[in-house]
C-alpha cells in the first residue's frame, strides 16, 4: 500500500518501497483549469528536492512542477503528453507525471500526510 505525501505546492508523491509516483493534486488541477500541455523530464535524470521536474500549462498559464523529494526519474507518463486533459480528469490516478527512485527516504518526513494536506488546503479557502 502506497503512502502518499504532499507538498505545499500541491504535488503528491505516492511511495511504495523506494519508488515514488509524482503528480499534482486534485486541488491543483482545479486551480489550473483546463490543462493543455505537459512537459516531462527524460528518464534517467536526477533531481534534488524542490528542483523543477516538469511543466504543466493550462489555457491561461504555465506552472512548474517540483520534485517533492530528490531522486532519479525511472519512468514518465507519456500518455498525459498526448492527452493532457487526463490530468484534470484523474490527477492522482491515470494523470500521474513521473516515477522517482527516492534518493533519501528521510526527505519524505518533511512532507505533509493526507490529513495535514487537507487541513492546509482548507486554509487556502
Amino acid at each position: 500500500m502506497a503512502d502518499t505525501r504532499y507538498t505545499k505546492d500541491h504535488e503528491y508523491i505516492q511511495v511504495t518501497g523506494d519508488i515514488g509516483v509524482v503528480g499534482i493534486t486534485d486541488y491543483a488541477q482545479q486551480q489550473l483549469g483546463d490543462i493543455v500541455f505537459v512537459e516531462l523530464p527524460e528518464v534517467g535524470r536526477s533531481f534534488g528536492k524542490g528542483d523543477e521536474a516538469a511543466v504543466v500549462e493550462s489555457v491561461k498559464a504555465a506552472s512548474e512542477i517540483y520534485a517533492p523529494v530528490g531522486g532519479e526519474v525511472i519512468e514518465v507518463n507519456a500518455a498525459i503528453e498526448g492527452e493532457p486533459a487526463v490530468v484534470n480528469e484523474d490527477p492522482t490516478g491515470r494523470g500521474w507525471f513521473l516515477k522517482l527512485r527516492v534518493a533519501d527516504a528521510a526527505e519524505l518526513g518533511d512532507l505533509m500526510d493526507e490529513g495535514a494536506y487537507r487541513q492546509y488546503v482548507a486554509t487556502l479557502g
Binding site: 500541491h10 504535488e11 504555465a62 517540483y66
Partner: peptide, 9 residues
C-alpha cells in the same frame, strides 16, 4: 506547483 507565466490578465 507555482504559476510561472505573466499571462493571467
Amino acid at each position: 506547483m507555482t504559476s510561472a507565466s505573466p499571462e493571467n490578465p
